[in-house]
Simulated scan of single mutants.
Amino acid sequence: MATLPWIDPDRLWFPPADQALEDPDGLLALGGDLSPDRLVLAYRQGIFPWYSDDQPILWWSPNPRCVLFPEEIHVSRSLRRTLNQQRFRITADQAFPEVIRLCAESRQEGTWITDEMTEAYSRLHQKGIVHSIEAWNQDGRLVGGMYGLALGRCFFGESMFSLETNASKALMVHLAGQLGAWGYNLIDCQVESGHLLRMGARCIPRAEFLSILEASVDRPPVQRDWNFQWRWTGPEA
């Protein structure tokens, strides 16, 4: 097995993403820290941390990369009916601590959202880089959510949870529509899942993903104010 680079916490640096291993897919380096500057640098270069409590910090850049282009979001007929019923109110940055907690708790197989990760992304939330998106049911209960980083015209999704049928799907539809209106080029989904693929996500070569990042992360979006609410205004089913 190839020797992985060890990241010195005192040095703000990553090896090129295209040096990541093929097996396990995308493993690039280990060590370092989760400081705001290091995390932002990682995402700008197509890299993200993913590890458990009993491991050092592991840094990844898988190939291919699962992404969702906002204009390619797929809304099924059944989901469109749910949206037309206005079953969910979608907000942003209204309940970040609850969202990241529920993202961790909803993963019964274990979570990489450790206390260290929670603290790190909370710091980035306070800096206006990490955002939460929330889905509330008609009783005002938080039933879906996700969080991720907004850098330039890219949104890097980190984790999502859903406590009611279609809550996370409704959230994704509204998020894609809003990001598209703001001129965002992509939503990074990191690793493919059936749920994401059914909603229009697809896998692209890492080289293509990195090229999009290079052209997008330094371009300001049309809008920066994440303090808003969305409601579905699409066509009837």
Rank of each mutant, 00 (worst) to 15 (best):
Q138L: 13
A135D: 04
S132Q: 03
T111L: 12
F88G: 04
A135E: 09
E164L: 09
I133N: 11
M160D: 08
H131Y: 08
S132E: 05
E105G: 08
L124W: 04
A95Q: 10
H74Y: 03
F155L: 12
L149N: 01
N137T: 04
W136E: 13
L149A: 07
G148R: 01
Y147G: 02
L102K: 13
K127H: 14
L151Q: 03
L163G: 06
F161R: 07
P97M: 06
C103I: 05
A92P: 05
H125P: 08
T82N: 04
Y147T: 04
T91N: 06
T165H: 02
C103F: 06
I100W: 09
E105N: 10
S76I: 00
Q85I: 00
R101M: 14
E119A: 08
E109T: 12
A150D: 01
G144Q: 04
A104V: 12
L83A: 02
V99Q: 09
F88V: 05
D93H: 06
W112K: 14
Y121F: 02
E158T: 01
C154H: 07
P97C: 05
T111A: 14
G145S: 08
G128C: 15
L79A: 02
G152P: 05
Y121W: 03
A120Y: 03
A104E: 13
G110I: 15
T114E: 12
R87V: 04
F96D: 09
L124F: 04
T91I: 10
F96V: 12
H125I: 05
S106K: 13
E164R: 09
D139H: 12
R89M: 12
K127M: 15
F96N: 06
G152A: 02
F155Q: 07
W112P: 13
L79S: 00
L83H: 01
H125W: 09
N137A: 06
V75C: 02
R141F: 07
S159C: 11
D139P: 08
S162Y: 03
A120D: 08
R153H: 06
T82H: 01
S78T: 01
A92G: 11
D93P: 10
F96P: 13
T165E: 07
P97H: 10
E164W: 07
Q94M: 11
F156M: 13
H131A: 13
R81Q: 02
T114R: 12
G140P: 03
A104F: 03
Q138K: 12
T82G: 01
